[in-house]
Amino acid sequence: MSTDVGTAPVEPRNVPAADAIPLLHLRNVSKSFGAVRALHQIDLEIPAGQVTALVGDNGAGKSVLIKCISGIHTPDSGQILWKGKPVHIRSPRAAAALGIETVHQDLALCDNLDIAENMFLGREITRRLILAEDAMEQAAAKTLQSLAVTTVSSVRQLVASLSGGQRQAVAIAKAVLWNSMLVIMDEPTAALGVAQTEMVLRLVRSLADRGLGVIIVSHNMNDVFEVADRIAVLRLGELVAQRPVAELDPQIVVDLMTTGRSSRIVDPLSDKTARTLDDQG
């Protein structure tokens, strides 16, 4: 199926202007649950038009971090800058209002509803209290087309009849439908076959090519290196590196994930301070 999807080339990656204000900037964000320090002084930038992969071992704080961004948790300290302006994201609704959409690992789709119904769930278009089915169906079909999802023959198809990759595509399209600017994806390729993984990765790539910021949480080094422009490595609640993918290889990332340092990159300990603008250039 992947052959039908995503006309964008996987390489080369587009490179935004070096002095651009990042779409999202976490500044010294910390979060503790009782005595457990889940996040400590995280300083992370998410540029628009790029895929940022968030990697780390279990318990490194990836989930807490994306929950802070999507409004499920509120940070204890630190600042979140959205397009350069400080914001407080207190609920998933607030995140959606800013243009931040999260695609959860379990996708949260209703099997008994069709694709269009799922994409508009909770935000249906109505005309005099009656659902405007035709308008929603057309908008859903247009969004799927713009994402080059062509394996779905009709948006009136029940989600129960879709494959894993198609379901992921619907969940992503649902996020895109609302003019979101940042899409967060939690393990989008877990539990997918080879062809379907390929399709989803192209979809992720095409989101970034449309100018959206994308955060992808993944355990799979193949996927990360195939799709990401930048990689941020978390370890025990701290951000140990955030670098363009060109400066890294899977072995370095695994080293960073497990030990917090890697002998193969220059000056790994000062990485936290050395990142920022020159990394993106």
């Binding site: 998933p92 609704r93 949260a108 099997d111 799922n118 769930l121 909770g122 935000r123």
Partner: peptide, 11 residues
């Protein structure tokens, strides 16, 4: 169909 999905959709 999926109460959790409905909840996340703000219902």
């Amino acid at each position: 169909g999926n109460a959790e999905a409905a909840r996340r959709a703000g219902i």
